[in-house]
């Protein structure tokens, strides 16, 4: 890795750190809302890599990919929050661990 100046590698390292924080958060938090936020963290980490690599390659494709990720993230949040609302209506204050009836 070239440490001189602001190279693409720095962006990637930052994105990796963000991604790992999000992943660990997803694994340890029980509140479904916070779990969704952690997913958003991971998606943003990926967005950073897209934009950084796109800039490095002098290509607008990276930004286009981010645009689509934004849209998908929006739909994901909409459906996810709808699920949270539906589950909470049945059982107030449910965490992700409380919804575990479907098991072997």
């Amino acid at each position: 890795m070239d440490l001189s100046g602001l190279t693409t590698g720095w962006y990637l390292a930052l994105a990796a750190a963000l991604f790992i924080i999000g992943a660990v958060g997803l694994l340890v938090r029980r509140n479904p809302l916070v779990m969704f936020m952690c997913v958003e963290l991971m998606l943003n980490a990926v967005n950073v890599t897209f934009v950084a690599l796109g800039a490095g390659l002098n290509d607008v494709g990276g930004q286009v990919a981010v645009f689509f990720v934004l849209v998908v993230a929006a739909t994901e949040v909409v459906i996810g929050l709808a699920l949270v609302v539906a589950i909470n209506r049945r059982r107030a204050g449910a965490t992700a661990d409380d919804v575990s009836m479907l098991k072997g």
Binding site: A23, L26, L27, V28, R30, M35, A96, D97, V99, S100, M101, L102, K103, G104
Partner: peptide, 18 residues
């Protein structure tokens, strides 16, 4: 024996995916 892995905890599934 393996069905015990299917615990129903979505976070455990996420762990296995990771």
């Amino acid at each position: 024996a393996l069905r015990r892995v299917q615990s129903g905890f979505v976070r455990f599934y996420a762990l296995l995916t990771a």
